[in-house]
Design a protein around this nucleic acid. Structure first.
Lengths: 181, 181
DNA sequence: GATTCCATGTAACACGTTACATGATTCA
DNA sequence: TGAATCATGTAACGTGTTACATGGAATC
C-alpha cells in the first residue's frame, strides 16, 4: 500500500497561508527544504486533482499589474482526509541517495587528495546549509506567537540542524582519517 | 548535465567481489544500505547496458544444483570511466524525503499523542538500524586487512552511524518537547 | 510441507524533474 | 537594459519500484 505523500503535502500547505501554487513552491523551498522538495511540474497538476477530488476549491482572481492567479482553499472533505493521513502511522524510514558516499565507497580507485577535496567541498556546502537553517530558526523564534504552526516548524528544523551538524562532524573526522595515512 | 550514478554504482560493485546481479543486490542491501538502494528491476537492465557499452564483460555459467548465472567483469574502458566519474567533483547534496517530518509539520491538525507515538516508533526503527550498522562495523574491523576496500566501507558506515545517532537524539528531544506542554 | 536461498528477467506503473511557453511589473 | 518577482501550465524524459514469471536445492 502506497500513499502519495506529495498530495498530502500540498493539501497541508494550503492550510497554512499558502493559497497559490507559486506560494506553495516558495514555502517548500524555504521551510520544508531539508526534508521535502517539489517542482512546479508536480504542484500544478496535483492542485488540479485536489479540486477534482473535492479536497480543495479554486477561486480565479484577476489581478491588476500582476498575473492572474488561482487561490486554493481546503474543503471539509480535504480536512478529513488530511487528518486521516496524519494519524495513520506507518513510519517509513527514508533512505537518502548520497553520491559522495558512493564515490568514497570506491575510493580505492581514486587518489586520496581527490577524495579529501570532495569531502571538504561537501563540508562547505553543509556549513552553508546549516547557516541558513539557523537563520530561519532565529527568524521563527523571534515571532513565535504569530503563527500557530511555528512550534512544529521549529521541531522539523531542529531535525535538519542536528543531522547537518552530524554530517559536518563526519566530514572533519573523515578528512583526518584520509589525510593521516 | 546529469550523470546516472546508478550505472557507476554497479560498475563499481563489480570491482569488489560481486560478480552476479544477485550478489550486487546483496552487497547493496548489506553495505550500501544507508546511502544507496536499488532493485533487481534496475540491476539487470543496467548490467546489460554495461556490457553493450563495453564497460563490462559477461560469462554465462551453468551450475549444477543451482540456477545458471552470469558473471560480470569490468573492462579496461570500464575502469577508465569509473575513475573519471570518481574524480569528477560536482558535489550534490542529497535531499531526503521524510514523511514523518511532513506529518509533524502539519501537527496542528493532529492530537499530540498521535505525533509522540510516531516519533517514538521512529526512534525504535532508528535504534534497530544503528544496531545493525554497529554490528557490521565490528565485523569489518575484525578482519580489516582482508579486503582492500574495507577502509572506505568504514568511512561510509561512520556517516550512517553519526546521522542515525543524531536522528535518535532528535527523537528524544522532540518527545520531550511535545510531552511537556 | 513450507520457507528460504540461489538466480534472472520483463512489463506496467508511479513519481518526479527539466525545459519550454507566456508575459506584465518592478527594481537596480 | 537586464534581472528578478509574480504566476500558470504542459510535454518529454529519466529513474525507480512492484508485481509477475520460473524453478531446483536445501533447510526447518
Amino acid at each position: 500500500m502506497k500513499t502519495n505523500s506529495t498530495k498530502y503535502a500540498i493539501l497541508g500547505l494550503i492550510t497554512t497561508d499558502c493559497r497559490t501554487g507559486y506560494e506553495i513552491k516558495n514555502l517548500i523551498d524555504r521551510s520544508l527544504n531539508h526534508f521535502w522538495k517539489i517542482s512546479f511540474g508536480q504542484i500544478y497538476p496535483t492542485l488540479k486533482t485536489l479540486v477534482e477530488e473535492e479536497l480543495a476549491t479554486v477561486e480565479y482572481t484577476v489581478q491588476a499589474g500582476k498575473p492572474d492567479k488561482k487561490e486554493y482553499h481546503i474543503t471539509e472533505l480535504g480536512q478529513q482526509q488530511l487528518q486521516e493521513w496524519l494519524e495513520s502511522s506507518e513510519i517509513t524510514i527514508p533512505h537518502e541517495r548520497n553520491e559522495l558516499m558512493l564515490k568514497l565507497f570506491f575510493s580505492r580507485h581514486q587518489p586520496a587528495e581527490s577524495a579529501i577535496h570532495k569531502v571538504n567541498e561537501y563540508a562547505v556546502a553543509l556549513q552553508e546549509k546549516l547557516a541558513t537553517y539557523e537563520l530561519i530558526q532565529e527568524e521563527i523564534k523571534s515571532h513565535e506567537s504569530v503563527h500557530p504552526d511555528s512550534r512544529y516548524w521549529l521541531i522539523t528544523l531542529d531535525y535538519g540542524i542536528r543531522k547537518t551538524r552530524a554530517a559536518i562532524d563526519w566530514c572533519h573526522a573523515t578528512v583526518d582519517t584520509l589525510s593521516g595515512s
